[in-house]
Design a protein around this nucleic acid. Sequence first.
RNA 1: AGUCUCGUAGCUCAGUUGGUUAGAGCGCUACACUGAUAAUGUAGAGGUCCGCGGUUCAAAUCCGCGCGAGACUACCA
Length: 1139
Amino acid sequence: MSKKFEEYSQLHLNECAREISEYWKRNDIFNKSISSRQGKSHYVFYDGPPSANGLPGIHHVMARTIKDVFCRYHTLKGEQVYRKAGWDTHGLPIELGVEKELNIIKEDIGKKISVDEYNKACRASVMRYTDIWKELTDKIGYWVDQENPYITYDSKYIETLWWILKQFYLKGLLYKGYTIQPYSPAAGTGLSTHELNMPGAYKEITDTTITVQFKARKESLPEFLKNLPGEVYFLAWTTTPWTLSSNTALTIGDSIEYTVVQTFNPYTFEPVYVILAKSLVQKVFSEGFSPVSNKISLESFKKEDKKIPYRALQSFYGSDILGSRYEQLLPWVLPYENAENAFQIISGAFVTTEEGTGIVHTAPTFGVDDAIVAKRHNVPPMLLWDVQKKQAVPLVDTQGRFIKEVPEPFSGRYVRNEYYKDKAPERSVDVELAILLKSIGRAFKVEKYKHSYPHCWRTDKPILYYPLDSWFIRTTAAKADMVSLNNSIHWIPESTGKNRFGHWLENLNDWNLSRSRYWGVPLPIWRTEDEQEELIIGSLAELITEIEKSVRAGLMKKNPFGAFVPGDMSWENYKAIDLHKPIVDDILLISPTGKSMKRESDLIDVWFDSGAMPFAQWHYPFENKEKIDQGKFYSADFIAEGVDQTRGWFYTLHAISSMLFQSVAYKNVLSNGLVLDKNGQKMSKSKGNAINPFKILELYGPDATRWYMISNAQPWENIKFDISGIDEVRRKFFGTLYNTYAFFALYANIDGFCYKEAFVEVAQRSELDRWILSELHQLIKKVRNHYDAYDPTRATRAIADFVINDLSNWYVRLCRRRFWKGDYTQDKIAAYQTLYDVLFSVSLLSAPVAPFFSERLYMDLTCVTEKEAFESVHLAYFPEFDEKLIDEPLERRMHIAQRLSSMVFSLRKKENIKVRQPLKQLMILASSSEEEKSVCAMFDLIKQEVNVKEIHFLTSDTAGELLTRELRPNFKKLGPKFGKHMLFVSHVLSHFSQEQIRQFEKQGIFTLKVQGSQKVISLQEVDISIRKVKGWSIDTHEGLTVALDINIDEKLRYEGIARELVNRVQNLRKAQGLEVTDKIKLSISASLEVEKAIKLNKEYICEDTLSASLSLNTYINEAEEIDFEGETIRVSVQKLAYG
RNA sequence: AGUCUCGUAGCUCAGUUGGUUAGAGCGCUACACUGAUAAUGUAGAGGUCCGCGGUUCAAAUCCGCGCGAGACUACCA
């Protein structure tokens, strides 16, 4: 006996996924999907490492689905797709988590808890949830190698990072410098941008602002300013007056227009000339000033006058005063270096004329932009040399107080009142300074100003921007490379790469690598105390050689890595050592001149960890050298992460790769949007709208979840996650596909179809078969293109549309009788083969997105026919597009037939005539003879579908007077021809009478006068449609018109009754649980009228209901009473024992 | 604050190089169809295509300015 197709009572996507998952595990399908492609071209994929100390969320399901879709697709295309999972194990989120758990703060590390213990706690915490992550990964069917993941804290991984850093060092890309970083004086610690971007960090505060007069050194000014008869001042505005003592430059915009204004200081009434941006004169001189136009009214000013007069003199560009000098505003101290370069006018791109004066007070020790622009112009920051600390210090200490070198009354005071722990003085430093500057005639304006300012999330006090020592990668040196390499990357969507990422690259700053934390990769640089000698370590072998030197010189007692054997690449060897703090901090090395060298205490930015994964995941170049050098696993063909990674992982991958090998790290990158809740709000635990992915998977299974996420919105757009959408996908797409299979299985099993018969040539098959195959191959082409273009959304929509509309709702519905009626003929075999082939192809097309259900479908189909040698759909090959099966005229015909049918249904509805009631004839008016011909071929189909006996054509002529035509201008064609007279032409054409239209149709052209000249309009330039036919029930749509003869004669009426009866009997059969093939004995008791209908159609009724006998008007014992055609009839269905 | 993305029916989304009656699905109402159907068909209700200007004979579509949502980057004095 041949095998049967599996039949199911119901669709259980969840159960299906569980079984398939088991099957994959049992048969090692994932590994086979890679090994079976041995020797084929590689499709290289990099998986971004998640941090395993947090629980996975629904957005991870999204991200992992996208990754999985393309890896599976390319496997199906025959490529070999390795994919290694990874874990991000270092960094601040992990440290913060541990601190919270242990209930400690950063300052406690090294005191309450040793660094060693702290790091052990981090290491333990970081892999805590790996089991849950693995479970999710399995459940959603994300195929990735979880057995051999790369883990950023592994010694091998760190060794590669050190090697890369050394390469950068040798290229001169690594340097130590100071930068301005967010700093919390109250907490005594620097803050990361991550901490700064925590919700609520930015708050509105009100500051005292001063518009300050900086007195120009006249000899340094250009001629036209030099010759002014009084003192000239630059006006600059500041929101942080306490930084004025650290001012070393003023920044202007090169191309901004400035002007010099003659006026009086509003506090001292001294006559002054002030320079500011021309467009801001009105704003700065808004209150208490009035413009005057001549010298005399200006010079006659007395301080009793209500308004201070001002007069703008000559204007000029910023570049004209570039390099001019000014007197130090608060001459308390001088910078210890290059003081001669201080106090000059420099230019910066960040200067705007939206606020202030267009001249920016620049204090390089306390502003990020200030430091950058000052450095570019070689202007020194205000730093003093501290003899005790042997280092340069700014005028404010790490507590936030002015240092002792600052004169009274400011010395020792906190720069912001918020920093006082107890009672703050009545007047803040800012206010005191404002008073001081007013008294010496250097304050031009003092105002309160409200703006948003970042606060420390721990102390809730405003942060300070403060210079801190850091190690940098000179990414700016590789900017040109990075920009041009980026142009070769295919970004999806394009705008992320071109705009967001492109602009970011254009405005690149050097990469600050330093993190003064505990749990991370230590910077492998050792330095002597005088900073004259330094050594960078690029491998463990190198480190051990250096340690041994140091031990010999007596600097260290013993080698802490004594157990390590250089050159032995085994995991055991590498597991024996730990390269984290505090162990590496205890290592002292010896410099070439015999001095002791200590490690630079910083850790490196965790983004460097993940950005180096193309190399570090393979322990390059210590192992797997050929994988990278021969380009087998580098660069990636594809990566995908959230759009928030643009400046994160996408950037660090790109930067490291560009600088190391002048190559891209990835060729195609998809940045996916966010998963929002159904109201478009971001999901967060605090809002309580976060969705537990396990719950969703439990409810709907992975396939529906994946399909919903992919098909609902394009991956790069945000998705509003609504679980009712998943349910809809399950019902509509999976439900329909399942039902189609169930239908196939039911009848294939009855007929014993198992694809043993010879392949029926497609040309020999029926119209419907050829049509669905043609549509299928159009689908294959579309789906391939969409997957290839990284647009899975369009692929899934096309598949669902095909399955629901073309396959289930049209092909199967119209073919039903072919399957359950008649003998096992060639036509029936062709139908089975067609449906089988279509379902088979659909299983493959859907496999990347719905891996479990597709597997079930594929296996249920193939295990009976044994036509495929593969154990899994994921080991098979993607369907090829076959041009020869495309029959576009047939597709058009079928489309017309569908439209016609739907029009007839509409008419029946209008006339209240059931589809079961046969009608005599249908008339069709086609707009062209070509159309007419194609409809002809569809007659049988349409007759069956809409239940009419005959179809005739109505020609324009025969229809004659019946038709009312409507003429509409074709704007696309006529628009360019008539231009602005279009409105007139449109008016004329749409007011044509029936007679005029007929004339036009006959003659083919119409002439009209436009602006005195004769213009000709042809029939091709208008659309004529038909409105109605007198005395007929008619409908018209897309140029097709149908008319339905709604007269029902007696014969038709009886036939309708018979069909109605068949339907009732079928329902009874089903209700009684009869098999489709069971034969019955049918008995009916009804009125004479119904009996007559039955008698006339007895053969038909018996055939369709599988009735061996039909008896009428007999006394029936156990019968169903049915409301039927306005009466109650009694029907009995009895199963026959044989048959 | 800047940069980028988005804004079409109650909801989720289509809408080609600009062409005059803006579509589909879900949901709602009514009726039908069905021996594969948690499916489907027909009809109805449902729109200021975010707003305002501009370009054009013609704008949901192109341009400008706003408004709103989101992301990223940030004390631009």
